[in-house]
Simulated assay, not measured.
Amino acid sequence: MEKDTTRTLSKALEKIQKSEEADQFIQKHGQSDFVYFYEYLNWIIAQKNLTTAEVITRSGINKNYVYNILNGDKRKPGRDKILALCIGAQMSYSQTQRALEIGNVAPLYPKDERDVRIAVAINGGVGDVTKINLILDEYGLEPINV
């Protein structure tokens, strides 16, 4: 399915007046977004053919906590936990930003040095929280709290 912009969809929605048209619109464009971070994380893990063990190891988060997130028991993990799991799942910068948005926490902010260092590490393919924390430590910045 072609990725439609919100503006395009909004303009199309303005023209819908009948219930049948609404049904067709919903069927065609449905809810493709994720409501909870754990849904998105599970989807990314499946898309990248990763194992949960790999993600846990690279994230540095306690495995029981990760399983509670993955099965939906813990639906609102904190920002650093989401960042750690994104890094562990080797998400791109844009995927990480999307994950933070879905998790209802602040995205990586380009005027914050810590966030810039994390973003640069993600862009550079650093897929291990321990390595990113060493980079942050070099600059005297707060580590990702796992």
Results as ranks from 00 to 15, higher is better:
residue 13 L to A: 15
residue 21 E to L: 05
residue 17 Q to R: 14
residue 84 A to G: 05
residue 23 D to R: 11
residue 57 T to A: 15
residue 11 K to H: 10
residue 68 N to D: 13
residue 61 I to S: 01
residue 40 Y to T: 00
residue 90 Q to V: 04
residue 67 Y to W: 13
residue 83 L to I: 10
residue 58 R to G: 00
residue 16 I to K: 12
residue 20 E to I: 08
residue 21 E to G: 15
residue 92 S to L: 13
residue 84 A to D: 08
residue 19 S to T: 14
residue 60 G to T: 08
residue 78 G to Q: 13
residue 50 L to M: 15
residue 12 A to N: 09
residue 36 Y to M: 12
residue 88 G to K: 02
residue 82 I to T: 09
residue 80 D to W: 02
residue 79 R to K: 12
residue 69 I to W: 11
residue 47 Q to T: 07
residue 58 R to F: 06
residue 75 R to M: 13
residue 36 Y to K: 12
residue 70 L to W: 07
residue 41 L to C: 08
residue 57 T to S: 14
residue 19 S to V: 14
residue 79 R to M: 04
residue 32 S to Q: 14
residue 29 H to E: 07
residue 70 L to E: 09
residue 20 E to D: 15
residue 68 N to V: 02
residue 91 M to S: 08
residue 78 G to C: 05
residue 6 T to R: 11
residue 6 T to N: 09
residue 7 R to S: 07
residue 7 R to W: 03
residue 17 Q to Y: 10
residue 12 A to H: 11
residue 88 G to I: 06
residue 76 K to I: 03
residue 65 Y to L: 09
residue 6 T to L: 12
residue 60 G to Q: 05
residue 64 N to L: 02
residue 29 H to I: 06
residue 80 D to T: 12
residue 79 R to W: 04
residue 63 K to Y: 08
residue 49 N to Q: 14
residue 9 L to N: 01
residue 93 Y to S: 10
residue 48 K to A: 11
residue 22 A to K: 13
residue 49 N to V: 03
residue 68 N to R: 15
residue 79 R to E: 02
residue 72 G to F: 15
residue 46 A to M: 01
residue 66 V to Y: 04
residue 85 L to N: 06
residue 64 N to T: 12
residue 76 K to C: 03
residue 35 V to N: 12
residue 18 K to S: 10
